[in-house]
Design a protein around this nucleic acid. Sequence first.
DNA 1: ACCTGAACACCGTTCAAGT
DNA 2: ACCTGAACACCGTTCAAGT
Lengths: 200, 200
Amino acid sequence: VATEENETIRRHSRDDVATAALQILDDYGLGDLTMRRIAAALGVQASALYWHFPNKQTLLADLADRIVGRAAPVGPQPDWRRTVAEECGALRDALLAYRDAAEVVASTLALGIGSTAAVERLAAAIASGGFDEETSQAAAPVLLHFVLGHVQHEQQRMQYDSLGIVPEGRSVLDGQSPSDRFFFGVELFTGGLELKLRQR
Amino acid sequence: VATEENETIRRHSRDDVATAALQILDDYGLGDLTMRRIAAALGVQASALYWHFPNKQTLLADLADRIVGRAAPVGPQPDWRRTVAEECGALRDALLAYRDAAEVVASTLALGIGSTAAVERLAAAIASGGFDEETSQAAAPVLLHFVLGHVQHEQQRMQYDSLGIVPEGRSVLDGQSPSDRFFFGVELFTGGLELKLRQR
DNA sequence: ACCTGAACACCGTTCAAGT
DNA sequence: ACCTGAACACCGTTCAAGT
């Protein structure tokens, strides 16, 4: 007879739900990421998800954590500005790995839920330049806002492009790649910090 | 007998709808800004709104334009960095004037709808520092992303505070006001540009 | 020119009940 | 421990029809 440790009667775990949600996010975008759709992908009723997550917001925060958590570790760099740039690049790559990821992370950040892993990594990178805690802690969110805003735009553009829509040929900027523009923005930040350093 | 130029039979204009929506946004927040609620405020069916706006997204874009359009003009300043800071401050004030305004503007910006007024003002301010078109055009969105991200956080905090929720005492930053932190971020940007200028 | 009424195709969430 | 089924209270949007 079947015993209670029979693994085959196991249904879904919290992890299964998050994985299915991440898949839907990447395949269909945030607009199609509904509780009903996630449930359907798991062959389950929407109400079943509420055993694993108290609400959709919490699920989204979990997805945001997973996305940011996949950011590659950054090794030692020649200087602190390079460290910050590499850290931002790693975060950007992690966001670009999932459709609408920047929007997901930005919204959970704005709601004050979700982990502080991203800001902390950036703060640590800045602090490696010899800045005091106060400066690092103040500068990190500034950087993060830029990164999220920039990638959000990039991903929006990707959407348009995949739909064949070409909105307004922006003459001047066409010469630079999104990646170039991104690191230009990062350099503006580190440049500002550099100046602060020199003025001491 | 009544003639067709009788003004009293006039119902609502596009402007009335936007004004009512702006009022609801400020009083109840973006989450409660539904087509049905706007219609109710005007004493009208939700479907009536679709005579004035093709969809909700367009309405939101219009609200974003109105909010940004209310930003105070900035007079001549002692130097370009001050000009940029004042311009950012004016934009911030305009956003702080309406509840959830930063989120409204950010979302329409991300969607690629809505006017480019905000970026253009910032680009002009930067260009006043003697930067070429390419640099100004690349730097302006960077700044805007920061401004929107920052104010979004401020407004989120205001929400929490009004609900009596106090999320995690952030020891280090408590000494600085949101306004201080904002202008610190702006200075990081202009500092980075300043450095670029000196290196030429 | 501006609006109604009714409908369509959805949402997130709750909760008693099942296994 | 995990899920069903049914319901609740909503959404945005369409469209024929009214005045």
